[in-house]
Design a protein around this nucleic acid. Sequence first.
DNA 1: AAATTAACATACGAGTTTGTTTGTATAATT
DNA 2: AATTATACAAACAAACTCGTATGTTAATTT
Lengths: 207, 207
Amino acid sequence: MRRTKAEAEETRQNILCAAERVFFEKGVANATMEEVASAAGVTRGAIYWHFANKTDLFLELYNAVKIPQEDMVARDIETDQCEDILGDIERVASDWLDVMSVDEQRQRVFAILLRCDYAGDLSPVLERQQEVDEHHTKILTTAFGRALNRGQMDRRWTPEAATNLLKWTMQGLCSEWLLFGRRFDLPVEGKKGLRQLFSSFQPAEGR
Amino acid sequence: MRRTKAEAEETRQNILCAAERVFFEKGVANATMEEVASAAGVTRGAIYWHFANKTDLFLELYNAVKIPQEDMVARDIETDQCEDILGDIERVASDWLDVMSVDEQRQRVFAILLRCDYAGDLSPVLERQQEVDEHHTKILTTAFGRALNRGQMDRRWTPEAATNLLKWTMQGLCSEWLLFGRRFDLPVEGKKGLRQLFSSFQPAEGR
DNA sequence: AAATTAACATACGAGTTTGTTTGTATAATT
DNA sequence: AATTATACAAACAAACTCGTATGTTAATTT
């Protein structure tokens, strides 16, 4: 049985991949280790060799995708020397929708995170989510603030209000799409909404 | 033991109330019937007398609050003879935030619905949610359409886009508030966002 | 007053799921 | 080449949970 280290890492990845699918289909709480094991083509013994328990498996799954999710959003906006700040923010949001619509792994993990129950063992995951959320909020708020200072934004908006509306829109958009079974075209409908929202951000003379 | 019908109905309500609290704290999947029973001050036998199983208990809990939720939103908007349609929609949304912020039962049920896992037994709940959602969408779309026809709304908006943005905003707003532990003032921050959004809906000459 | 039935409590059996332990074959080490 | 550690599979024991079955008491009916 004892395979090489590369093969062991491969089964580990298989387990993570299978856990992602099973957790997505049955929910974290309702999924059993046996189901994950058979989905990965191994026995529970293999899972317990690589992971301590179901909570640990879920946390590792979360860690595997959380990093790319974070820098994805932060990218591009933080640079200070762009001339069209609002355009950049809208573009990043639109890109996010494009990525989301094709990356099935991200869809599954996001849906799992939306539906999972953070009470008890999984509370650290929620805390981590909140940290990421606060980070994004700060970045967006300062970006909108710069847009306001440079006269690129309608003065009736505040950085906080714009940040909130954008965040809530994206959150609601993704939630409805993922929870309700992706019944509409996420990039098309989402970009329409973003376009309308950002056109209302723009200064009055430009409208 | 055999109590009167009124007392029996009281224990039934106690069970529903306890289930609401336990499901909220531990999640539907992780909650056990024993926990619900002891929280209600009865044994599991009482629960199985009033409800078939955990799924049935959850469905009854859902039915107990779904009706007020539905007519709450539909009210006021459907009447055709109002002069300020956008104002009415915004008012209904604001009222909803007010109700939501003080009604702890609604908060718990909504949070349970957000976090529960609809795969398997609970899929009828999801279907019911979708029906309600579609109904709201229709009402809002026709209302925004009327506002557009009467020149009360900026012509660059479409009824669908406005409906989507409003729905997504409300959904994202409530999700963040409920899932992240109500860390901000829902009516205050929410109404700020709504105000900005609806001010962007209004016709250009009015801005 | 006797019988019945509603509203539970208690006890029981059975099925799951979990975590651990033991076995084992193979790669790595010495 | 012998030993050891690794990467699992298989078996096992324990706990948990569910649904049901049975018991019990008080209200209701006859």
